[in-house]
Design a binder for these strands. Sequence first.
DNA 1: CACATAAAACCGACCAGACGGTATGGAGGG
DNA 2: CCCTCCATACCGTCTGGTCGGTTTTATGTG
Lengths: 194, 194
Amino acid sequence: MKNSNVADRVTRVAVELFATQEFANTSVLQIVAAAGVTKGAMYHYFQSKDDLLFGIYERMLSLQRAHLETTLEKGGPADSVLRDVCIDVIETSIDFLPEGTVFFRSMHLLSEPRRAEVTRRRREYHDRISSLIERGQDEGSFRTDIPRSVLIAHFFSDVHYLSHWYSPDGPETKSEVAQQLTDLFLSGIRKEAQ
Amino acid sequence: MKNSNVADRVTRVAVELFATQEFANTSVLQIVAAAGVTKGAMYHYFQSKDDLLFGIYERMLSLQRAHLETTLEKGGPADSVLRDVCIDVIETSIDFLPEGTVFFRSMHLLSEPRRAEVTRRRREYHDRISSLIERGQDEGSFRTDIPRSVLIAHFFSDVHYLSHWYSPDGPETKSEVAQQLTDLFLSGIRKEAQ
DNA sequence: CACATAAAACCGACCAGACGGTATGGAGGG
DNA sequence: CCCTCCATACCGTCTGGTCGGTTTTATGTG
């Protein structure tokens, strides 16, 4: 990392604080104190508190997109692709638990041009998952008696809830949980369950 | 309602604002302005902003408990009881979407003796669901190859995510969604899927 | 290596405004 | 005359953000 030490530490501390407290309830003084720097130093690297928040979204969005693309371009039947996507997105969420918490919780606090962009990129992501499920329905592997919007909600709900219960110190390992949740999800949406 | 008009309106407005913005990002002034009252009037009925938040938790917790008890005491095989519980909790969540948002998001902002109490009552609720699932496993209807903690997380995730995607103005009705999500969930955890 | 210079990194004092909460007092009914 | 209900003005504190200035580092030159 030839990048600034200060910016990195502030970023790391900020996401942790935004996750445990809320964004609006976290003062920049708190952040810089926890990061061991001064406010002047922080405002040298970030234009506003909002930048800190947006930075989290940018990193997570590009990470998600990159992962999804890698998994998608391997190809294969929708059933197995969705399994890979599901496992990957759960494992990634576990790797970035605090980021995920902030991601889902604080979108409406972003300043306006940015919020719109995040919304757009999230919709892109949603649409790709939706297409994948649609393909699976066409291939006859997924049930068609439930609206796709509900299937997608069911997909994202597990991911979203992770940060509310999973702890790396708990009994289950990351890959175990990813396997199990994926299994539960796929068992639910497969055609034979219909 | 022989209760105060002011207190009711403030409560209603507060939960709406806490859900759309964050708790810490919502000022008392904003609340009373939106409710059409003055700060003096509000502080006549509530001791603090924290009271507003705690009130939401109290109402939701007792509502949840009451509903769960009603459903549980009807008895029957765990499989069908869990189905009833699941449908009921989803429908209730839809009836109280903003409350649910605040409920899951802002617990860590409660002042301390209260937060502990909320945590305790939530754990009670969790444990009763856990017992129900355990009974279903004993009766041979639910799969046993996945830790119960993961099954429970899978259960609550759908409920939790509702406020992030469901809209009463959307195409799906409340009872449809409840049926469908319950179906997806149960198809996942049933033994035959193992 | 010495030195000059410029740019980047950083500090800490300082705003103006908003915050949650309070103190005071008046209106109206019992 | 007191008590409930409510409005207004106000308080101390903390907020995100700015700014002038100082130190540190990088670069160029002989």
